[in-house]
Write a protein that binds this DNA or RNA. Structure first.
Lengths: 342, 342
DNA sequence: CTGAAAGCGCTTACAG
DNA sequence: CTGAAAGCGCTTACAG
């Protein structure tokens, strides 16, 4: 550290006690007399001493650091998660070490992560290779895949029930009497999109309804806008669009209104997934499926804390129930409308 | 660390070299023969060894950690900053240690921050007490106040030219012929709001125009919505509203359209500040002042890196030029319209 | 180039 | 309760 960093030795000298005593004064529960503690604390105050958390970590093997990997923060679901997770972890005495990743450099980043001896890893970006996941297990570092999972993975995962949520949302659309329901997919290799699309398809086929059209928006704004235009370049307009997440849905609605002059929901219904803050904005009032951040974060922290304290890594897969949030971006069947207004 | 963590000693044994040799093999530029390096690297690979960055930090006094303090991520300016800053820092070999703060517990959090021996601090939340700022100077830790400043502070700061930006934006409104221009303020104690409001007032008074009405939205969505309603509860409607940031402006526009049935910009002009991603969405097309994140982050990283390497903390105040982004949420004077469309 | 050794700032048995 | 000492996992002069 730079010039003025004070060490326990200096405090000891000033307080006329041993360096061990200084250490004890800052260790809750250590056996130390009130008198000595007071002298140490006074001296520390005077010198501006703060225990070195890094040195402590080297000694105890506990860094109190949790690595969080994120690919992008454009979809506002992630900032909300980051904030909630950070506060929850801080309340437990842990701090987040943040890593922004790109598609493709996940493993490289993880190598770096492990270097910091973090006590846990939350992957809110792509997932890690199985080799690395194995290394984490070997090293005893719990890994939680957040909002994603890999079948047969060694890592734990926390997701909402994307399949069921999508089913219920699709049901809503079908009940409202829509005939031509289109689907705009997110990133096709993501577990969220796979499950949501599977839920959509399951409900559609159960109702004996063909999927009107399908386009891919890759979870980006631009992708969603282009997908929407392609949808309307084809013959036979959809009367409803199931968009794989909210972030894309805003782009879809904007194109619908602005480029195509359509009214939502009068001319066409649009639903999304996530329930990010903007979904509740009056400009969108998006009907969507809520991914309940609080319970998801709680589950994540619980897994982490439990495995850290038990010093054993076991794979857990948590599925948090999803909830349909009915707003005004879609037409509603009369009986649903009544139920909602009540 | 847990069970399977490998140390340099174990690698040394397997490679049949000294522990120092292992350390050298992982220190770029250290004097070591290719032969020994290779043996070490092979052994390390075999055991899954990674140097302990924490121990390294204790030894070298360089943690390669930068603390970032944020209060909330609701205003999407901050997630964008966080992502950009994180990538810029990572490119320099630094990692972000994230701290979510609340109003009021800043100092407490800073104490914790210092414990981790971070090499720099970016305050994108409230600012720290002068006592603490002094301690940071004493300890040689550079502090950058991001998007805020404190007069006569010991900390460096990076801001955009809020005053000038606000003036130019106000000019745009005046030139368009608006007569009743209202102002919706953000957090009144923030430097951003003070400067923006000062710029607004300066331009208004220079033009000999009275401020129509003023309300406070405190930089929150709810605050902005209520402020808008209060604005219209008063006698004499505004024909333009200068909102202190984009985040609030979206709420203002939504209330205007949704609750009051007004058209933007036909019935009323609205402008914001920041140029967050949503400002460009077709649903808003908000005229605003861009706070250029890239240059701001670059300046921040430059200050940090320079002061870290020179091991000297000096107070620097960077003002990045702001830029008016003309979109469609406000009426435009004919000559401006022409200039823009060109 | 290489190893033995001292040192970084701590924690924590071990004796008293 | 208290201090001297060993140890955590590294880095880095110092000799060879």
């Amino acid at each position: 550290m730079a010039k003025g960093v004070v060490t326990s030795g200096q405090v000891a000298k000033l307080a006329k006690v041993s360096q061990s005593a200084v250490s004890r004064a800052f260790s809750p529960g250590a056996s130390i007399s009130d008198d000595v503690r007071k002298r140490v604390l006074d001296a520390a105050e005077q010198l501006g001493y703060r225990p070195n958390a890094l040195a402590k970590a080297v000694n105890t093997g506990r860094s109190r650091l949790i690595a969080v990997l994120v690919t992008y923060l454009d979809n506002h679901f992630y900032p909300v998660v980051l904030e909630t997770l950070s506060r929850a972890l801080q309340a437990r005495g842990y701090q987040i070490l943040l890593f922004m990743t790109d598609r493709g450099n996940q493993d490289e980043v993880i190598q770096k992560v492990l270097t910091y001896r973090v006590e846990g890893i939350v992957m809110a970006s792509a997932d890690m290779s199985s080799t690395l996941a194995q290394q984490c297990v070997d090293t005893g570092i719990p890994v939680v895949l957040f909002n994603r999972y890999v079948p047969n993975s060694l890592s734990s995962s926390v997701v909402t029930d994307n399949f069921e949520g999508a089913r219920k949302l699709t049901r809503l659309l079908i009940d409202a009497g829509h005939q031509n329901i289109a689907f705009i997919a997110g990133a096709e290799d993501s577990s969220t999109n796979k499950d949501r699309e599977a839920g959509f398809l399951a409900e559609m086929s159960e109702a004996g309804m063909p999927v009107h059209l399908r386009e891919v928006g890759s979870y980006t704004m631009e992708g969603a806008e282009e997908a929407t235009r392609r949808l309307f370049a084809a013959r036979g307009r959809p009367d409803a669009i199931f968009v794989a997440n909210d972030h894309m849905a805003f782009g879809v609605i904007d194109v619908l209104r602005d480029d195509l002059g359509l009214k939502v929901p009068e001319d066409i219904s649009v639903v999304g997934f996530d329930d990010v803050p903007e979904a509740g904005w009056k400009g969108y009032r998006l009907t969507t499926v809520r991914q309940p951040v609080e319970p998801m974060v709680r589950a994540t922290v619980d897994i982490l804390m439990e495995q850290i304290s038990s010093n054993s890594v076991e794979t857990r897969a948590i599925i948090v129930p999803s909830q349909v949030i009915v707003r005004r971006s879609c037409r509603l069947a009369p009986f649903v409308r009544e139920a909602v207004s009540r």
